[in-house]
Design a protein around this nucleic acid. Structure first.
Lengths: 156, 156
DNA sequence: TGACAATCTTACGTTTACGGAAGATAATTT
DNA sequence: AAATTATCTTCCGTAAACGTAAGATTGTCA
C-alpha cells in the first residue's frame, strides 16, 4: 500500500537470509532491485515476495539454474500464443519431480518409524545387556528388511 | 548364501554409481571393504546393502556428515546400557526433519497444482492474445496468493 | 561535523561430493 | 607369455552457492 522499500540489510534480516545471498541471486539474474542515484539497492514488497519464493525453492533443494528457468518464463509468456503451454509444461515437470521426492521421503519415513518401534521395544526388553540393541537381539533379528538399519548394523 | 563378493567395478555398476563415489564413501569412513592380499577391494552382499542405503540417503539430499552420524551409532550402541536411546533419539530427529520436508514439498505441490489449473484455463480462454497468460489476464488476476507465481510475474 | 554504521564493487577463499589424469601394479583374456 | 583391462594410490580440478576481506563511498545519529 505504502510503496515501502527496504535496503539490502533490512531485506536480508526480514527474510532471515544473508546479504551475500541476495546479491548472489542478483548476479545470477534472478532479481533486479531498484537503485538509488547513488547505487544503493532498494527492494519493494514485490521484490521481497520474489526473494521469498526464490529462498523457498533453494531451501527445498532446487538449483539456481532451475529457478532461473521458472523465472524466465515470464518473457516467453509475453511473446504471445503458445507461450502458456510452456509454463504449463514447466509446472508439470516440476510437479512430477516433487511428487517423486515426496514419495521417496515418505518411504523413508515409514522405515524410520518401523525402526523406532523396534528400538523402543528393545529399550524395554530384559535381555542380557550384551544382546540389547544389537543385531543378535531376538527382537530385532528378524527385521533385516529395514534398509536403513544396514547403516547401523555390522558390515562384515 | 554363497558369500558372494564383488570388486569395486562390479559393485559400482550393480549400484548404478561410480567407482569414485564408492571410494569416496570409504575415505569418509562410511564403509570399509575387505581387501585381498594384493589390496583389491571386495564387497560382500552386506557391503552392497550398506552402500545402497548410503546412496539412497545421499540422493535424498542428506549430507555425508549426517550419514556418518547414523552409521556411527553402531559403536555407541555396542557400548551397552543407555545406547539404544541414542539411536532412538537420532531416528526421532531424522523423522522430524523428513516430515517437515515432506510437508513443505506437499505445500509446494498444492501451489503448483493451483497454478496449473489457472494456466490451463488461460490456454482455453478467448481473451486478447496480449492479455493471455499475463498478470493482467482476468482469469489470473485475482490469484496473487500463489507464491510461486511471484517468480513468473513482474517485479516492478 | 565528526564518528560510526551500512552499502558499494572487486575479487579471492571455502565447502561438499565427487571427476579425472598419472603412473604403477594386479587380474584377466587370448 | 603377451596384451589388455581393471584396480591401486596420489593428487589436482570442478561446480554450486555462497563467505569473507579490502578499500572506497554513503547514510545516519549525537
Amino acid at each position: 500500500m505504502t510503496g515501502n522499500t527496504y535496503k539490502i540489510g533490512e531485506a536480508a534480516s526480514q527474510l532471515a537470509t544473508s546479504i551475500r545471498s541476495i546479491r548472489y541471486y542478483e548476479e545470477e539474474g534472478l532479481i533486479t532491485p531498484i537503485r538509488t542515484q547513488r547505487g544503493t539497492r532498494l527492494y519493494s514488497e514485490k521484490h521481497i515476495n520474489r526473494l521469498s519464493a526464490i529462498l523457498r525453492l533453494t531451501q527445498l533443494g532446487f538449483s539456481i539454474e532451475t529457478i532461473r528457468k521458472i523465472a524466465k518464463l515470464r518473457e516467453s509468456t509475453n511473446s504471445g500464443d503458445e507461450s502458456s503451454h510452456l509454463l504449463e509444461a514447466c509446472l508439470n515437470e516440476a510437479l512430477t519431480t516433487i511428487n517423486k521426492k515426496v514419495k521417496e521421503f515418505e518411504n523413508l519415513s515409514v522405515e524410520i518409524n518401523k525402526a523406532m518401534r523396534i528400538v523402543k521395544k528393545c529399550n524395554g526388553c530384559t535381555n542380557e545387556p550384551s544382546t540389547r540393541g544389537c543385531p543378535d537381539c531376538p527382537v530385532i533379528n528378524n527385521l533385516n528388511n529395514i534398509q536403513l538399519l544396514n547403516l547401523v548394523w555390522d558390515t562384515d
